[in-house]
Computed example of a mutant assay.
Amino acid sequence: MKIKNELGYIDISRKAIADIAGNAAMGCYGLVGMAHQRGKDGLIEIMSGEQASKGVGVKIDDDGKLIIDLYVIVEQAIKISVVAENIISAVKYSVEKQTSLKVKRISVNVVSVRV
C-alpha cells in the first residue's frame, strides 16, 4: 500500500498491517490466540506472539481502504459478541492510528472456543 505525501512515497506492506492488527487483537480480553486453519482436515493451530499475523488477512479495496479478516480462538464462558466488538474496536484504532489508512471493514471469524 503506497501513501503519497509532499516528500515522496511511503510503502506499507500487507504483512506490516497484519502484524499491527494481530498485536492489537492479542491485547483484547477473552482472546486465547489467533487461528491458522490448515488443510481440509480442519486442524486448528493457536498462533500467538510473532505468529499472530498468520491469523490475519488483509485486502485493499478499489477505494484504497482496508478489509481485515481475523481468525480467532476465544475463551469459554465469555460472551463472544462482546469479545468480537472489543477486537474490532482495538484493531481499527491501532491500524488507523499507526498507518493513517482507513479501515472499511473488519470481520472476526471465531474458529474455536477454548477453556
Rank of each mutant, 00 (worst) to 15 (best):
M1E: 11
K4V: 11
N5G: 13
E6Q: 08
E6M: 06
E6T: 10
G8I: 03
Y9Q: 09
I10M: 05
I10C: 02
D11H: 09
S13K: 00
S13R: 03
R14D: 06
D19W: 00
D19S: 08
I20F: 04
A21Q: 03
A21D: 02
G22M: 00
N23D: 10
N23G: 08
N23E: 14
M26P: 06
C28D: 02
G33K: 09
A35T: 05
A35H: 06
H36R: 09
R38L: 12
R38G: 14
R38W: 08
G39D: 10
G42E: 07
G42Y: 02
L43T: 11
M47Q: 13
M47L: 15
G49P: 06
G49I: 12
G49M: 09
Q51A: 15
V56K: 02
V56E: 02
G57F: 02
K59S: 14
D62E: 15
D62A: 15
G64V: 12
D69W: 05
V72R: 00
I73K: 06
V74S: 03
E75N: 09
Q76M: 13
A77N: 09
K79E: 14
I80C: 05
I80E: 04
S81E: 14
V83M: 01
A84P: 07
N86V: 10
N86L: 11
I88L: 01
S89T: 10
S89W: 05
A90Y: 06
V91I: 00
K92R: 02
K92G: 01
Y93C: 08
S94D: 11
E96F: 05
Q98V: 09
S100F: 07
S100Y: 08
S100R: 09
V103R: 04
R105C: 03
R105S: 02
R105P: 00
V108R: 01
N109R: 01
N109D: 03
N109P: 07
V110N: 05
V110G: 09
V111D: 13
V111L: 13
V111R: 12
S112N: 14
S112T: 13
R114Q: 12
